[in-house]
Amino acid sequence: MTDSLQSSQPMPLSVWRNPWHNLAFGFGSGTLPKAPGTWGSLLALAFVPLWQTLPGWAYGLVIVASMLFGIWLCGKVAQDLGVHDHEGIVWDEFAGIWITFWLVPAGWPWLLLGFLVFRVLDIVKPWPLSWVDRNVTGGLGIMLDDILAGFAACGLVHLVVWLVG
């Protein structure tokens, strides 16, 4: 769901005491009162220049690890909190942003473009993202729409790189 549609969930204090909850809530970025997914995406964006220094295969391993870990993490934390997908859980945005920039050239213009494309896809949730968001449950359900948004954003950014390059 979009950030604005889920703003009624109370923020659990466990975010500050439980390391798994802290990770799922993006080191606290998901606790911000407005647009937690956007804040989580911005914090995740800070890691991208570091990942871009890695060889493509190593960055790919970071992506695979963040996806697999995220399925477990988001499922665990949602279960701990007794909710399907708490608005403050933003590890899915971390993985989605990191996917967006795989093999994308470094530089602020690409970071800005990729961030905007990913956020639009994650908020608007065109089909099949909307179907996944409504029908897939658990940790996989929390993660999958953002994973797909990340791959779609990555493809669109690569298309722009190819067109202007």
Rank of each mutant, 00 (worst) to 15 (best):
M1K: 06
T2N: 12
Q6E: 15
S7D: 14
S8F: 10
P10E: 05
P10K: 10
M11F: 12
P12A: 12
L13D: 14
V15E: 05
V15W: 13
W16I: 14
H21M: 13
N22V: 00
N22Q: 03
N22S: 09
L23A: 15
F25G: 07
G26L: 07
S29K: 08
P36N: 12
P36T: 12
S41W: 13
L43N: 03
L43E: 09
L45G: 15
V48R: 08
V48Q: 11
L50S: 07
W51E: 04
L54H: 02
G56V: 13
A58R: 07
L61Y: 05
V62H: 04
V62I: 14
I63M: 04
V64E: 07
V64W: 05
A65E: 07
A65D: 12
A65L: 15
M67D: 02
I71E: 05
K76S: 13
V77N: 03
V77F: 02
D80M: 11
L81A: 09
H84Y: 02
G88T: 07
G88W: 11
I89S: 03
V90F: 02
W91G: 00
W91I: 00
G96Q: 05
W98H: 10
F101P: 02
L103W: 08
P109H: 11
P109R: 09
W110H: 06
L112A: 15
G114A: 08
F115M: 11
L116A: 15
F118V: 06
L121T: 05
D122W: 01
K125M: 01
P126H: 03
L129A: 01
S130I: 05
V132I: 15
V132D: 00
V132Y: 00
D133W: 00
R134G: 00
T137I: 02
G138Y: 01
G139Y: 00
L140D: 00
I142F: 04
M143Q: 11
M143C: 08
A149Q: 10
A149D: 08
A149C: 09
A149F: 06
A152Y: 14
A153Q: 11
V157T: 10
V157A: 11
L159A: 15
V161W: 08
V161A: 11
L163G: 12
V164A: 10
